[in-house]
Structure formats: C-alpha cells, structure tokens
Design a protein around this nucleic acid. Structure first.
Length: 480
DNA sequence: ATGTTC
C-alpha cells in the first residue's frame, strides 16, 4: 500500500476508503512522517480486512503504533453491534488482558542513588520471570476457578496488596460474565503455577522516575511529581490466556463456516456475539481477563516486598501505591454514542488502550476531572508516557488510544543487530541496570527494535485522542 | 505473546 491509497482527514488521521467487501472505511492515526514505516507493513491491509466483518460500526481503526498481528493488526480498535456483530479472538490477541500497571512511590530519585543494583536484584528474585516461569504461587484447579471469577480481588483477599489498589484498576480488577466451565483443563493446568509471574518477550517490570511533566493539573491529580520513583509492570495472562485463545481458534473456524461468515483472512475467525460459540469465547476470555488482573496484583505485592527488603525501609516510607492499571488486549461491552444515540457495543482493543474522557463514571473519583490515565510503555532505554483520555476519543475511537512504541525490527532482525554486543552493559552505561532471564530476550528487546514512543504519543495528542501528562525514564528493569 | 505443542 502507498500513501496514494489514503485520504487525508487531518494532520494525524488518514482514511482508506470503503472498497470491495469492506462494510466501513479503515482509519489510521499517524503523522505524515510515520506513514512510510506503517505502509511498509501488512498492518494497513489487516485494518481493511477487519472492515469486512459483520456488524462493524463506523470504522476499522488503527493507532499510530500499529503493526502486523494475528488476523487483526496490533494497534487495532473495532466496535461491533451486539445483535448483528461478531466476536473474534484475533481481535483480542493471544495474550488476553495484557496490560500495564503504574505504581508511584513517596521516594525521590536521589533517595535511591546507588541502590539500583540491589533493588533490581531483589525484584528479579521476587518475581518469577521468563518463558514458562512459575512456582512462586501454586493454586489448585478449584482455587483457580475462584481466581477467574474474582480477578485482582482474589489476590487482595489472600494478602497480595490492599483494597485501595482495586479502585485504581480498569474494571476495578474484575469483569463480570466469566464462564469457568468454558475454559479447558489444559488452560487450568497451565495457569495453576503462573500467578504472580512476569513472562517473557516485551513483558517487563521497570523502576523509573518522573522526568517531565506536561500537564501539572493532571499530574497532580494522579499524584505524580518530578523525580518521583515509579514502577511499571507490563504483563498479561501467561499460558492461561494463551491456551484460552488457542482453544477458541478451532471452534471459531468452524463457527465461521456454520454461520456463513465470509472472511478475507482465515485468521479473522469469529462468531456472532449471540451464538453459543461467541458466548463460549466471551465467557472463557473473561476468565483470562480476570487471571491477568490477579497476576498483576500479585506481582505488585511482590514488588512492594522487594522494595522493602532492598531499601530496608518501612512500607509507609516507600509508599508504593497503584496510580492506575490498564488493559490493552481485550474485548468489552461498552456504551458509546453511535449516530447520536447511546448504544451498547462490543469494543475489541488489540494493542490499544481505553482512554475515557473526564467525567466518565468508569474513572476513579480522584481522577474524574482530568480523564482516565493511559499508560504507554516505551523501550528499555528511552522513556514511557502517562496520558489521559479525552472527549475526542469518546467521539472518534470508542474511547481508545495507542498502547506502546510498536516494533521497528522483527525479533530476528533485532537479534542480528545485537550480535557481538553486550546489551546489559550498554544499558548500564546509559544509567539503566537491567537483569534479563535470557540473553536472547534482551537481544530481541534492544531499544532500536522499537519505534520512538514519543512519536506515537505525539500523534495521538495531535489527533486529540489523548493528552500528555508526564514522561517517565527508566533506572532499572527486569526482563524475561 | 506462548513454550517445545498434529
């Protein structure tokens, strides 16, 4: 695809007109400068494919961090009519409820100078990390059924973190409508040993600090101040969510044929929301959503413990509280304004973040005036961002924005570029102490493997679908 | 993303 195939809507928004079997146009959020990289990938074609799906409302949307994914593009947002529309596992992704928690402390950067190595080591020893990591917290299948019903509440009830965390998690850390009977024995078996584990790939736990504030009023509402020590936890539903997704694909493939849904790409396999197959996936997916909420809640607890041990300070002095937690691989029923009327729709966000406007009841009371916090991790070496949602996002993107930097290099290309280098040492020279479980992951995750997240965030700000609040910079990190 | 899986 070339830029000639796009119609310019404004400086940060482009449209692929409806053509062929597309039911709606596709819209890409990006600045002109970002277009060549976006168009060099198959992701725009995937956004067009999504526009073919039954019941899609308004547009097939793609955020500036879009790139190629399974069926739907990563960075894709699509809402479907509850009567005529579909639910698709490819529109959620393999890592169901992959998401990000931001924690902020009472500490200033200067207070932990020289302690980063100890702190990161303690974190690495406290949070199981890497492919197949598990074992810290093992639960029976019966207990796991409670986990998938209760989400983060399950973790808090068992002493992992506090009640006050729950208010600051999207959906308060638990969604309704889960169906534990829709989850396979294999998924339960995989999930039983993986609560409180980080995983691998782009998942990480990072200690950083507030480096810049763009919006003092919003930063103050979120309790953020310059040089404040922060923690970002990025992970998902581990083998449990993966298995739920995998189990559903075969079922969806058959359902597509049964209901006569014609697809431009088999990976868009889906079923009508109202069908038994659609309901089964929704029930199982919601179990995985809650599993991920419980997972991040347990990790947050281990993080607090590690801080206390490494810094030899009491919890009140460290003061690590949850600023907010977002999901960025999820499908949810939400009420949006469609053609001037409030309507409940099924929003798929795959590598995209909810970004609700000021005033929404879904936002914690303390933040309601400034909008929903949106947490955008960058790469290991540069920076991450805190944004807030806007009214424009409610009107244009079903209350959604970007989710991260987006890959610039494939894993294979990144590994090739990292050959002969010592990535840990390079990052240490930049003042970032990293412990990685495997050298391979560290190589795949070199900063150059990612686009500059500031460009992504600026495109969303320019389009008006979120506002910049603060920039965070890394000091230490653990990786799978 | 996942973990060694027809």
């Amino acid at each position: 695809m070339t830029s000639r195939d796009l119609k310019k809507i404004n400086d940060a928004l482009w449209e692929i007109p409806r053509q062929g079997g597309m039911r709606v146009p596709a819209r890409i959020y990006a600045t002109e400068k970002m277009l060549p990289a976006i168009l060099s990938d198959k992701a725009p074609e995937q956004a067009m494919n999504v526009a073919h799906l039954p019941g899609i409302i308004n547009y097939s949307l793609a955020m500036p961090d879009m790139h190629w994914g399974y069926g739907f593009p990563i960075g894709g947002v699509a809402a479907f009519d509850l009567q005529d529309g579909i639910i698709s596992p490819g529109g959620v992704g393999y890592d169901i409820n992959c998401g990000v928690r931001l924690m902020a402390s009472n500490l200033k950067r200067q207070q932990i100078t020289g302690k980063m190595q100890e702190l990161v080591t303690e974190l690495f020893n406290s949070v199981p990390t890497g492919v197949g990591a598990g074992g810290r917290l093992t639960v029976s299948k019966a207990e796991l059924k409670k986990v998938v019903r209760q989400g983060a509440h399950w973790a808090v009830a068992r002493g992992y973190g506090s009640e006050s965390d729950l208010e600051y998690i999207e959906e308060s850390g638990c969604v309704d409508g889960c169906d534990p009977a829709a989850v396979s024995a294999h998924a339960y078996a995989r999930g039983s040993k993986q609560l409180g584990t980080l995983g691998s790939g782009n998942h990480f736990l990072e200690v950083g600090y507030v480096a810049e504030i763009y919006n003092p009023k919003a930063a103050s509402a979120l309790g953020l101040f310059l040089d404040q020590i922060t923690v970002i936890i990025h992970c998902g539903s581990r083998g449990f969510g993966y298995q739920v997704c995998d189990d559903s694909l075969g079922i969806m493939d058959k359902a597509g044929r049964k209901y006569g849904i014609s697809l431009p790409d088999r990976q868009l396999a889906c079923a009508p929301i109202s069908s038994p197959e659609g309901q089964q996936y929704l029930g199982a997916m919601r179990c995985a959503i809650n599993y991920a909420f419980a997972n991040r809640q347990a990790i947050a607890h281990f993080t607090r413990m590690a801080f206390e041990r490494a810094l030899a300070m009491p919890p009140a002095e460290i003061g690590l509280r949850t600023v907010y937690e977002v999901a960025h691989n999820i499908a949810k029923f939400e009420t949006h304004l469609v053609n001037g009327e409030r309507k409940k729709v099924c929003v798929h966000r795959k590598g995209a973040t909810r970004a609700f406007a000021p005033g929404s009841n879904e936002i914690p009371a303390a933040y309601r005036e400034v909008g929903q916090p949106v947490l955008i991790p960058g790469d290991m070496g540069r920076y991450s961002y805190v944004l807030v949602g806007t009214e424009q996002a409610m009107q244009d993107t079903f209350g959604s924005t970007c989710h991260g930097a987006g890959r610039a290099l494939s894993r294979t290309k990144a590994k090739k570029q990292a050959r002969g280098r010592n990535i840990g040492r390079e990052l240490q020279d930049r003042g970032i102490y990293v412990i990685g479980k495997s050298r391979r992951t560290l190589d795949e995750e070199i900063p150059e493997a990612y686009k500059d997240v500031s460009h992504v965030v600026d495109a969303c700000a320019r389009a008006g679908i979120s506002r910049k609040v603060a920039q965070l910079r890394p000091l230490g990190c653990i990786k799978g």
